[in-house]
Design a protein around this nucleic acid. Sequence first.
DNA 1: TTGAATATATACCACACAGTATATAGTTTT
DNA 2: AAAACTATATACTGTGTGGTATATATTCAA
Lengths: 198, 198
Amino acid sequence: MTTKAERTTAYIIETVAPIFNKHGYVGTSMSDLTDATGLTKGAIYGNFENKEALALAAFEYNSTKLLMALDECLSGEPSALKQLGKLTGFYRHYDEFTDEMGGCPVLNVGVDANFNNRQLASAARETVRTIEGKIALVLENGVRNNEIKLPVPPLQFAKQLFTMIQGAVAMATISNDRKYLINTVAYLDVLISREISK
Amino acid sequence: MTTKAERTTAYIIETVAPIFNKHGYVGTSMSDLTDATGLTKGAIYGNFENKEALALAAFEYNSTKLLMALDECLSGEPSALKQLGKLTGFYRHYDEFTDEMGGCPVLNVGVDANFNNRQLASAARETVRTIEGKIALVLENGVRNNEIKLPVPPLQFAKQLFTMIQGAVAMATISNDRKYLINTVAYLDVLISREISK
DNA sequence: TTGAATATATACCACACAGTATATAGTTTT
DNA sequence: AAAACTATATACTGTGTGGTATATATTCAA
């Protein structure tokens, strides 16, 4: 069974994760966190060394959620084209998916931590690399199974795809308009069926 | 001639603009600003009502710099295709351009201010709309002069272009890798010459 | 060059910040 | 059920925060 502290730790992380994601590392104060959790600083500092460790755990929590959702979204589909369709479908409703975590963690933390927090910044970079790797894997399988043809190596194409997706995420976030997601995903669907599917 | 206060105001803004852009609104303290300017709080508060007004002026300063650079980049070219080439050329070295202001103001402020500062957030949105409008204008002229053909209305295509560009900017920022800019711009050049140029 | 107006510096305020030492409450283990 | 251990609450520290009232320079107009 899980110990009390483990449950408290988990509770703190999941409660705190959207707050850090929304307001950033410096923009989030310990009192924000005690307010949200209903716990005191004693409880929080008993479970986390300091604010930074907690922020890192919070990002990892959101990041893992995202990566797991992507895994689930890509698994179970035998064909690479179907997988890519699932991927674009996932990002078509990405705003809904990220709503409960307070926006896209990759974008928010990646930009926020850029000049402010080395650890968080490199954690965001790592998540980007992981996602690109997942997409590249799909593309590699597609090439191997003679399903698709690529003008560039799989990883580069994956980066290109993710750049467009993340651009839509950024624009939707900045402009508060989900049309960016919808239009970009529609474009990608056409791109995939016209340019790379055999 | 400009009054002393006007010069001081300008000096404060240009000194402070990259700091706000790098560290965000909450991440920038008044003492950061007194340190950087060599002035005291008395001087700063004599020229700006409060921190928020200063942050807003700082963003407007960076934003105007960007918009003016875009105007200069697009002006003087008679053909829409040449203008689009200039545009992609500009963003190929966007990291160098934004270096002195501490990164892309649209991305940094747009993301940072999202849940934290209404005024800054809507200022960033406004800048986005302005840039999209400029690109749309180029496209409209291209269509009118029978230079290009568009699958969707000019503004929508402009938004689509800018989404990809801003995606590259976001990815280059998060991953600290300018290849995203280079590859995306290369892709856009191909897209333009293959898909929309007659 | 002097007097009025303006611009900057100094010294301060109340409050919020991250973090901690210690007391108390709660949970396990025996 | 009691003892030993663990987890949370309380109360506090020193420092930094945005902001301001006022004194002192500095600039400008006559």
